[in-house]
Structures are given as structure tokens and as C-alpha cells.
Simulated assay, not measured.
Amino acid sequence: MYLVIGHSSYITFCHLENEVAFTCSADHSARKWEVATGQCLTVYTGHTSIVNRILVSRNLLFSGSYDRTARLWDVDSGRSLQEFQGHRNCVLALAHFSSSDILEASNMEGKEVKEFLVTGSTDCTVKIWEAFRGCCLQTLQGHVGAILCIVLDVPNKELFSGSTDYTIRKWNMVTGDQLKVFRDHQGSVICLEVGDIIIN
């Protein structure tokens, strides 16, 4: 057992990925750690407020912050690759998918694979971004409370968002159309998971 020291304020989220751990903090940064030794391998700096969520996908790290932005980082170098500006309040939820996830292999032949980021905010909206260009492709509106969680059902090209307005909403990932509203909760929806038959 060892004590990991590096952040200068409290840690808001932790993600374990193989032999490394990723953390984000109220000190406005995220860090990558070697699990075996506790050594800090990379520091990701650029946000100007609390970093409350991170998401790791292959060699990409996404972060969401109270500074109203999300960012894309190179995992190994710590270099900021893109900043996503457009939300009017803090970014609380993140999800990621690739064009290869939603298109048939036959339709991908000869095409560049594109990466997409989905963000949820306390401004009551969900946004879908093209990751490397930083442009917002869709703004999903309908919630009347903060978006606390997002989950993707990639095979069906559907996105689910949970909110402090006590609802879950189902959206088409491609068109941005709202498909259904689930209204039976009596409190904020803080976590979502998609199964084969039901949503928990």
C-alpha cells in the first residue's frame, strides 16, 4: 500500500484502465498514474475550474469541467488536442463513440473514422461534437434540469440521458430526435446502464 500525492485539492473522479489510473480534481487538472508504483506519469492542465469527469478511450482522454468546457487530450503526452465550447454551464457527463461504431463495415470502406464526444451539462442540454474538429453537430433539448448521466446504445444508434428533472430521455444519436421520455422516477436520475431488455 502507498499514498499517492500530486493533486493539490480533492479528487472528483477516478478511472482505472489496465495498469494505469486516471484522476481529476478540484485543482483544475487531471492526472495519469502508474498503479504498481503510484508514480504520476502525465498531468493534464488547461481547465480553469474544477474537473469533475474524465473518460478514457484508446489513446484519447476527455474531460468535463465547471469552466463550461470539455477537452480532448492525448493520453501519453498530456497535450490538449481540442476544447469544446458552447455549454452555458458546467459539463457533468461524458460519452464517446466512433463512426465505425454506428456504420456497417461495408459503409466504412475508404472512409475516415471520425470520433465523437457527447456532453451533458447543468444548462439542461446534451451536445454531440465531432471530436477532432471541436464543432457541435447536435444540441439535444428537452430536459428542464441538469444532465447528470449519459449512456449510449450504439448498436441501436440511441442515446439516453438522466437528469435532475426526474426523467430519462431517449434520443436518436444520428438525427438528434427525442424518441421517448421516461417519467416514473421521484428524484434525480444519477446513473444509467443499458441492458438487452431494460434500462436500470
Results as ranks from 00 to 15, higher is better:
146 A>N: 07
119 T>M: 01
27 D>G: 06
48 T>C: 09
69 T>P: 06
169 R>S: 04
143 H>L: 04
150 I>P: 01
74 D>V: 00
37 T>E: 08
144 V>S: 15
50 I>W: 14
80 S>E: 11
23 T>W: 03
159 L>W: 00
152 L>D: 07
154 V>A: 09
184 D>H: 11
167 T>D: 02
119 T>W: 02
185 H>K: 01
60 L>G: 01
55 L>T: 03
39 Q>T: 07
81 L>K: 09
48 T>A: 08
180 K>F: 11
23 T>Q: 04
67 D>H: 11
140 L>F: 10
200 N>R: 11
65 S>C: 06
155 P>N: 11
4 V>E: 12
89 N>G: 10
80 S>T: 08
123 D>A: 02
63 S>L: 07
94 L>M: 09
64 G>S: 02
82 Q>I: 02
132 F>R: 14
35 V>K: 06
34 E>T: 02
173 M>D: 01
69 T>N: 10
163 S>T: 09
72 L>P: 09
171 W>R: 06
160 F>C: 08
191 C>V: 13
62 F>M: 02
88 R>F: 09
135 C>Q: 13
191 C>F: 11
13 F>Y: 15
89 N>E: 08
6 G>P: 05
13 F>Q: 15
131 A>W: 02
89 N>V: 04
31 R>I: 00
191 C>H: 13
162 G>Y: 10
194 V>W: 07
37 T>I: 04
133 R>H: 08
136 C>L: 04
58 R>S: 12
69 T>V: 08
68 R>D: 12
42 T>G: 01
167 T>L: 00
74 D>C: 04
20 V>R: 12
136 C>Y: 07
8 S>V: 05
140 L>D: 08
66 Y>R: 14
92 L>C: 07
52 N>D: 12
141 Q>R: 14
28 H>Q: 15
104 E>W: 01
16 L>Q: 15
68 R>Q: 14
35 V>R: 07
148 L>M: 13
83 E>T: 15
22 F>K: 03
92 L>R: 06
58 R>Q: 13
59 N>W: 00
128 I>K: 13
116 F>I: 05
67 D>T: 10
3 L>N: 11
119 T>V: 05
